[in-house]
Design a protein around this nucleic acid. Structure first.
Lengths: 248, 248
DNA sequence: CGCGATTTGTGCACGCCTTCACAAGCGCCT
DNA sequence: AGGCGCTTGTGAAGGCGTGCACAAATCGCG
């Protein structure tokens, strides 16, 4: 699936890809739609209604329609959206047809798991290099790749024309690694280390902090606990229909 | 540091903790402030200005002041914020003084790493139970804990009064695990499995999808690539002061 | 060929969040 | 004691995102 250009590729009216500037919120949801669409495609569905796809992606149907309308008009009124076509569109917009090269820095507890994470490869990302500052880890084989020393990061990353760097080092070394990645020409960074990274404005950084997620949940636990003790607070309603309401 | 109640604990005017309802956006930033504050405390700082703390947390100083003002007035004009006091305040609001029990379901590639992730324990979360559906994994020792079978999840989770459940299973079993967690009384779930979870409305779910993060970065790569080819597009400005601009 | 059922695409209003700009408050120095 | 500089806390404005509600468009059927 998702192999050749269809008649008119969305943004290439004239060889120059006129890029629709999508709202950030929309961009963040496109991968979710894509996952739902792949799932639908596996079940053999040819078309989906906005209602159906919205349910599968866990969002409001109006929001979904507005999101997709930003990509252009790829639905048919009275029918719905062509699943295969929409998959191609979203993959094109997200640049997933490029099979981007990813490198991973820091092969510790978390990094080791990320190196073997199947979810990356299955969605078009190739982990092509692993780095670590610990000499004991250098040379180790993980998932068919040899761990290299971070001193070689800049050279190797430039050679392999790596687009995305993943930082899974301890907080103290994250900034130095980011600097090396930037120096090697990497313009997108996924950072698992707690703390703020300083990078040039043309570099995109996304941060994932697992402890922060737990802390946010902890807040809601705290809030819920104090609500149950409060006059107006409904104290743990056990049976409420059962479904719906997905956090954040 | 950060041991006893100070004079008037923020929300306990009358034994009943009146909970300030903070904006979601603020809640999501509090952990970041907390981390920055801990860092400052280690360097021996007594007080911080909003400007200083904002820089350390990577946000706008006005935003930080507004966020903190929601907790109450804990700054001193002309001086700044008392670091130790603010740490206590935020930890109280986030409910981190409760030392919450966490269980982890799915001890695969990612789950194994999460079980050993130091960042959890260091920030007040105790992983007290591990589960997996694979009989070969049951009984395995990880980080001092024995992996138990998911059939026992509901019973054990209820016994240990677990507040937060972490799902790191394959997508197919995530919903069943969520159902079991809910049945055991867990009201907060951190989900690493792709897909949408259906839970009662009193349960909070936060989702972390590593592939989605990469896809969002891929989009920006795609966008940047097409911008450089475009007339108005500034093509890779290499030297731009050097700092600032942290993505999302 | 026309009509009704269905579903998309979107104008509009509302609410949340961010950012600016500044008054109010606090400490220090003279 | 008084004034000055610094910093917080907040009113107001602007922007972004969401969701409703409906017009426009398409298909199928009689």
């Amino acid at each position: 699936m998702s192999q050749q250009r269809h008649g008119s590729t969305p943004g290439e009216a004239d060889g120059v890809p006129a890029f629709p500037d999508l709202p950030e919120a929309t961009i963040a949801r496109l991968p979710e739609y894509l996952r739902a669409l792949h799932h639908l495609a596996e079940t053999g569905a040819e078309t989906v209604s906005s209602e159906g796809l919205a349910a599968a992606a866990g969002v409001n149907s109006a929001k979904l329609r507005k999101d997709l309308s930003h990509l252009g008009s790829y639905g048919t009124r009275g029918v719905g959206y062509d699943v295969a076509l929409l998959v191609d569109q979203i993959e094109y917009i997200l640049g997933l047809d490029k099979n981007r090269a990813v490198c991973l820095v820091g092969v510790g507890n978390l990094g080791h798991a990320l190196a073997g994470y199947a979810g990356f490869a299955s969605r078009g990302f190739r982990v092509v290099a692993l780095f670590d500052a610990d000499p004991k880890k250098v040379g180790e084989q993980i998932n068919g790749l040899t761990v290299q020393h971070t001193d070689d990061l800049e050279r190797v990353a430039a050679e392999e024309s790596i687009a995305i760097g993943v930082i899974a080092t301890p907080p103290g070394t994250a900034q130095a690694v980011a600097d090396a990645l930037v120096a090697a020409g990497v313009t997108s960074i996924l950072n698992f280390a707690p703390g703020v990274l300083s990078v040039p404005s043309n570099v995109d950084v996304r941060k994932v902090d697992l402890a922060i997620e737990l802390q946010i949940l902890s807040f809601h636990e705290h809030r819920k606990a104090s609500l149950t003790a409060l006059p107006g607070g409904r104290s743990a309603p056990p049976a409420n229909g059962g479904q719906e309401a997905v956090g954040s």
